[in-house]
């Protein structure tokens, strides 16, 4: 008797089909019901200095919603403070970065009141530098030139994403290019010869 005609075979097939057919829409509907708007966090720089004050902007969150901002890393979760979004789901506030937390990689996380994470950014926490960077676009006091809650860096680097490739000066070497061309020619000739020769039968 064929496997398909036996009762375990049929049960397996029918069970699998029912599971697949019902689980996808059920999961989608359940997840849809629980979903709420996710937003975007913006920083002038992804490198934060411990003990400094950092302006943080948020966009596209739920309107008039409360958010908690935290730094989350292996050293733990550090609450920076709470914000309330405006009528378009945005906010722009400055937060003090604790001076006494472990340096390293963190995520800046926005948590909604139901405990769901609604946005995050990877950041790096650095020690306060004795010699501030001489970057003309960035002020020395807060690590990002911010006016009216908006960072110029953020405007140029984070507000204008594009699908145009960067114009990069590609590394080139005549040896690499020449080697690649020779390799291609050898492959073409070798492939052609193998296909052209009468196929042996053993």
């Amino acid at each position: 008797m064929s496997f398909y005609r036996s009762w375990p075979g049929r049960a397996l097939i029918v069970g699998s089909l029912v599971a697949v057919i019902t689980s996808i829409p059920a999961t989608v509907i359940a997840a849809d019901a629980l979903r709420h708007p996710e937003g975007t966090l913006k920083l002038a720089k992804r490198q934060l200095v411990a003990g400094s004050t950092v302006p943080i902007r948020g966009e596209m969150f739920a309107e008039h919603g409360k958010l908690a901002l935290l730094l989350v890393g292996v050293a733990g979760r550090f609450r920076l403070g709470d914000v309330t979004t405006d009528s378009v789901g945005g906010f722009a506030e400055s937060f003090d970065i604790p001076a006494d937390i472990e340096l390293g990689a963190y995520r800046l996380v926005a948590i909604a009141t139901d405990g769901d994470e609604v946005a995050s950014l990877n950041v790096e926490l650095l020690a306060e530098s004795p010699a501030p960077e001489k970057d003309p676009g960035i002020s020395e006091d807060d690590g990002g030139h911010v006016e009216d809650g908006h960072s110029h860096d953020a405007e140029s680097a984070e507000d204008a994403p594009t699908d145009e490739p960067l114009i990069l000066e590609r590394a080139g070497s005549p040896w690499v290019r020449g080697g690649a061309v020779v390799g291609i020619i050898i492959a073409l000739v070798g492939g052609g010869l193998l296909l052209r020769r009468p196929q042996g039968t053993g």
Binding site: P165, A180, G191, L194
Partner: peptide
């Protein structure tokens, strides 16, 4: 083997003629 070598050649030609870019 013949088709495999032709495939390698075609991939190499594409890699030289149409290098992959990087966005911001």
């Amino acid at each position: 083997g013949g088709f495999a070598l032709l495939l390698v050649a075609v991939v190499g030609i594409f890699a030289i003629a149409l290098p992959h870019g990087l966005l911001a």
